[in-house]
Amino acid sequence: MTSTHLPSRPNEASRAASALLSAFRLGAGQTLAGWPVLVGRCIFYVILLIVLSALWDKVVAERLPGTLAGELPAGGLALYIGVTEWITLALPAVHLKLEDDIRSGGLEPHLLRPKSYLAQTFSQSLGAAMVRLGALGVTALVLLAVSGREPPPWEAFAYIVPLGVLGVVVGILLYALAGLMAFWARRTLPFQLVIQKLMFLLGGLYAPVTLYPPLLEAVAKASPFAAHLYWPSIQAIVTSREGFLTGLAWQGFWIVVLSYACLSLWRAGLAKVLREGGV
């Protein structure tokens, strides 16, 4: 039993992948185990959509002359909001998990294991997010059918699903940045709040950033927050292959940049813990 099982080189990649997959399943399992919370989230989603679509339906019904209302699509922004909230509510609180593990010393058992804590945590969060995306997605489709609203063209769904998944990845990375600040700050709440509010504002949670003044629109579109929310959601009201590809490119860019940022913070934080024995 004292024989050692070190991974042999050729197998290393596949073993790393299987550990990540296993963490993904674990995250999904945890979310399913907490199903009452999941149901609560779906109900919240429904009520949020009812309120927000009431707002935009009213604006479109009135179409006051000389306002931005002329730029709104015929069906209002209900579909757009449906996607932004779908992504927002699917995000797990990865920042809280990181803060908790880092500040409480809960990192130690993980550091005593041969796989990267950061990669495992990320994979686990992604698993949780996918279950939520699924449950909220089904809720959205049911609500769409019940509301009698005209659905977007079928290809919109083919664009929204991959962009939505990548949007969630961007969101998890953004929140992970806030959580990793726990190596240096006692509370990560301020970082998390700033990121969350920027998601609302620059990500276009309540309305597409195209309705903003030109400068703000340009800044927003290039930000990671638009990669998180705007690019997936705009497909619900302005479906285009070009928009899909542009969004995909921005998401790819920001996933690389944010992953690198997370990794750098993690390495610096880990070095601190290994040197000082804690935070």
Partner: peptide, 13 residues
């Protein structure tokens, strides 16, 4: 489930 997760973390057959 925890045991199974650890199997993957430690690359166990």
């Amino acid at each position: 489930d925890s045991f199974n997760q650890l199997r993957h973390i430690y690359d166990q057959d």
